[in-house]
Write a protein that binds this DNA or RNA. Structure first.
Length: 678
RNA sequence: AGCGGGGUGGGGUAGCCAGGUUAACCCGCGGGGCUCAUAACCCCGAGAUCGGUGGUUCAAAUCCACCCCCCGCUACCA
């Protein structure tokens, strides 16, 4: 077991205030962080759970502008909804702040100035795109164009989704302003850069030597370092954000990824102020014995394992992260979630129908954090009904009901303990120490599994002891059995509190123990119950979910997917429009793979009087080269030519596609090359 | 193609990093027990040569090499 220091700050990645959260976010970040912090608190650690919405940056500025709202209104709206959702699933934040708060601006500017003074931020003039019509420079996502590296269109100013490279807006080919679509021009402007390259060696050493950093974080970060770190441009020409605190820098703000992580500190400052102890934030960020534990999704490892530690190191007054836990992703029914495709379960929709504890349980138990997991409604039903309601809920219920009915609404005192009773108590201790060990290692999956196993053991113990028989023959023995069973229930309540806080509290009330389960020290799980202790009439801990309800959920998902992606019936075209298309029959006379591509063939097609034309077709998965050679095919001959994967394609082959794959169309009898298709 | 994650009894997963008792858990299936409890609980059983091949080792699901397949993201799919 690792030695826990006295003060720990637990952070969850700051959600970006432009959309609501879904189950994936909860699984990778917010639920694990919440379980962990609740566990630490129970262990007596002075742990606080800090989070905030991340409210700056060009994506928000662009979306606000496009929806005709002010940035402020826009982020106000999402801040509220995001917080609502997170609270609904039981996230026990000590503070949930905003990066638009004044203390955040203040600290960010202080940070910037410090780095500037220390020479870690330098100024440089360079050419940037300027939109003459909108009369402004175009940062990041205000400009799109063709990626200079992979040639794909729709690359944004900050990065190309196609090849994943980070870009400078001025690198884009054929750029256009996304607001007015006009072509921007290059103008000289000044910007500030963070000297990340100066931390190359430091970071490499820090990451390699940090034994508590999980492997997925380590490996990922080291790869970046190996490729060499580049300085980051950390200012933007934008009016939404933290102003650059330098004379003559009007109209410039600090880049969102510079200010966002500072939000962890500024939120702690706000927390301290709200407590009326404005200095206590220092106990977490400047006390060498304090620990900083960041929970993030795997998509932002770079920012937390490289950029952020370098910033902190450069500043010099703050602790560096102790641990970064990066949660992997969650699929939905085996497929990647996607909001735009309607394949998503939003938190608000979940909590409207189901118990948040069941979700927390499912997400924690289904698989280790360091692995991708899947959310499936059938699996959810099984876990809720079988594990929570039956194994856990029924155990607690049968033990308490027995006590209530047979021992005068009391949990009887234990009499003489036989070997089995002693073994049962030893089981509590075993479960407790093993669950603690797993929690210390962020292995929430094994921890909750181990705790539910204790409930299983309880059922077995109860069965084997047959108190319904011994109550008649040896009431003392029955009393002992019930006492020990209730003791297991008490231990379960305490150990489950971090995972399923509401159910644990219900268990606590049913046991009629003082205070809240959430105020109990972790080791209270090992302690005995008071003698002859009165309890209220037990109620089922979890109600089972009807399969019908789950079928409805699956149907809702299916429909939402169909709505978003279902191809609407094609609009009618006139015969004249159809005639514009020059459809022909031709013969494939040459086939070769397009180098570097997976699915593409380059084909030469003999189209008779039209000559030989080249086509690039994505049919390699379905046809071998020689299956295509000398085959007659249908093509559209007068399509605007285009380059695909850098290869000219003049005509397109017609093919039918369904779930099974692709089948090319051809005439049923051999026809002259170049013959028209009507 | 690049990056990431996988392939373990009928289904879903854990174990793999730190190799070593009868490969674990949930569901399902067959049989039995119990009747306190939310038609819940408990026990027994059938069912896996741990994707393939080769290697390292006294010993491999676990380490190494090569190969096959799946999934996700990104992309071409004229």
């Amino acid at each position: 077991m690792s030695a826990l220091s006295k003060k720990v700050i637990v952070t969850a990645a700051l959600p970006y205030a432009n959309a609501r959260l879904h189950l994936g976010h909860l699984r990778s970040t917010y639920i694990p962080a919440d379980i962990y912090v609740r566990y630490l608190r129970a262990k007596g650690v002075d742990a606080i759970y800090v989070c905030a919405t991340d409210e700056h940056g060009t994506p928000i500025a662009v979306m606000a502008e496009q929806s005709g709202k002010s940035c402020k209104d826009y982020v106000d709206y999402y801040h509220k909804l995001i917080l609502e959702d997170l609270l609904a699933v039981g996230c026990s934040f000590d503070i949930f702040a905003r990066t638009t708060n004044p203390e955040h601006y203040e600290l960010t500017q202080e940070f910037f100035k410090r780095l500037l003074e220390k020479g870690y931020i330098y100024e440089e003039e360079y050419e940037q795109l300027y939109c003459p019509k909108c009369k402004r420079f175009l940062p990041d996502r205000y400009v799109e164009g063709v990626c200079p590296y992979c040639g794909s269109p729709g690359a944004r100013g900050d990065a190309c989704d196609a090849c994943g490279r980070y870009l400078k807006p001025s690198e884009l080919k054929e750029p256009y302003c996304i607001i007015c679509k006009s072509t921007p021009e290059l103008r000289t402007t000044r910007h500030w850069f963070f000297k990340l390259s100066a931390f190359q060696e430091f970071l490499e050493k820090w990451i390699k030597e940090n034994e508590r950093l999980p492997d997925n974080v380590k490996n990922f970060a080291l790869q970046w370092i190996k490729e060499g770190l580049m300085d980051w441009c950390i200012t933007r020409d934008l009016d939404w954000g933290v102003p650059v605190p330098v004379e003559g820098a009007e109209g410039k703000v600090i880049y969102v990824w510079f200010d966002a992580p500072i939000g962890y500190i500024s939120s702690t400052i706000r927390y301290a102020e709200e407590r009326g102890k404005p200095e206590v934030w220092k106990d977490y960020w400047q006390n060498p014995d304090a620990e900083i534990v960041h929970f993030i999704g795997k998509d932002i490892i770079y920012h937390h394992a490289i950029f952020w530690p370098a910033m902190l190191r450069a500043h010099g007054d703050f602790n560096l992260p102790t641990i970064i836990v990066a949660g992997e992703f969650l699929t939905l029914e085996g497929k990647k979630m996607s909001k735009s495709r309607g394949w998503v379960v939003e938190i608000k929709d979940y909590v409207a129908k189901f118990d948040p504890d069941s979700l927390r349980y499912y997400l924690a138990v289904s698989s280790p954090l360091t692995k991708d997991a899947d959310f499936s409604w059938d699996e959810f039903l099984r876990r809720h009904n079988n594990e929570l309601a039956d194994v856990l809920g029924n155990f607690v219920h049968r033990a308490l009901t027995f006590a209530y009915r047979n021992f005068g609404e009391k949990i009887p005192s234990a009499k003489e303990l036989d070997d089995y009773d002693k073994q049962a108590i030893a089981e509590i201790e075993k479960a407790h120490s093993e669950a603690s060990k797993y929690l210390d290692q962020f292995d929430f999956h094994s921890a909750i599994r181990r705790i539910i196993d204790l409930a299983s053991f309880g059922n077995k113990y109860f069965n084997d002891k047959e108190p319904w028989n011994t109550i008649k023959t040896d009431p003392d023995k029955a009393a002992t059995t019930i006492h020990v069973s209730c003791r297991i229930a008490k231990a379960l309540a305490i150990m489950l509190a971090p995972f399923i806080p509401n159910a644990a509290e219900r268990m606590w009330s049913m046991l009629n123990l003082p205070g809240s389960v959430h105020e109990q020290p972790w080791d209270e799980a090992l302690k005995d119950l008071p003698p002859d202790h009165l309890i209220p009439a037990p109620k089922p801990l979890f109600t089972k979910i009807e399969p019908k309800v789950i079928r409805e959920q699956k149907e809702i998902l299916r429909r939402s997917l169909a709505e978003r992606t279902g191809e609407a019936e094609a609009p009618k075209v006139s015969i004249d429009e159809f005639k514009k298309m020059d459809l022909r029959v031709g013969t494939v006379i040459e086939v070769e793979r397009v180098p570097g591509s997976k699915n593409l063939y380059k084909l030469k097609i003999d189209l008779g009087e039209l000559g030989i034309r080249q086509s690039v077709a994505g049919i390699a998965p379905w046809y071998k080269e020689d299956e295509l050679l000398n085959k007659q095919v249908a093509v559209i001959a007068n399509l605007q030519p285009a380059k695909i994967f850098g290869v000219e394609s003049e005509v397109m082959i017609l093919a039918a596609e369904d779930e099974e794959g692709v089948s090319i169309l051809q005439p049923d009898k051999k026809k002259r090359n170049g013959s028209k298709i009507l």
